[in-house]
Amino acid sequence: MISLSEIDTTVKRATKAVGFPWGIAEEVGKSIRILEMFGLPGLKNLNEYFKVFNSKKFQNVTVISKSNISKISYCPIISGINFLDQVHTLEGFEKIEFENFAFPILFIPFLSRSSEIIGKKIFLKIDEKEFLLNFNQSMYSSNLNVNIIERANNIKINFLNNENSFSNQDWQELYKLSEKTFVEETEELKKKAAGAGLTDND
């Protein structure tokens, strides 16, 4: 088995070899490592992308907007790097769309890292395939058996607000149960507790 460390190093060198600068190559090494760790086919997709990288043209988006449309496919690496670099601004958009995106699987780790940077979950839809990115700690998807995706017509990105997945009633019911571990304090003990004996208005 190839270790993640070997994947990181070899991907970094290969990315430099196709013409990216070292700083970007370092980011791609980490990204493919993340994909492989999460069980997604990062190396396969990157390999296929690099096979066509120098023979085809790809769109290098710089300033990402709410809606990004291009006649030539967006480069997942440059788009990913730009997304990562601009994420503090982008989270204000709530929703971002790309049309015509090359090898979109390679975009996922940049979004995953972005989720960690801003502390918000990110919901990603690559055509019909859905992914939930949780602060770069985990990834949830019903499409984990994806293989190589050469192109996506549409990519939708939602920054999710930090909200609970349960109702207030669920919480109250569980809290009540947790109270059964508490012990009633005597009046004497209450008097000796922290802050006792001092005026509250000093």
Binding site: P21, G23, E26, V63, D85, Q86
Partner: peptide, 17 residues
């Protein structure tokens, strides 16, 4: 911002880091 600087200067990204 560093993000905006990097748009055109990713050749030095490794040393910015």
């Amino acid at each position: 911002t560093i993000g905006n600087f990097l748009f055109e200067n990713n050749d030095l990204r490794h040393v910015v880091r």
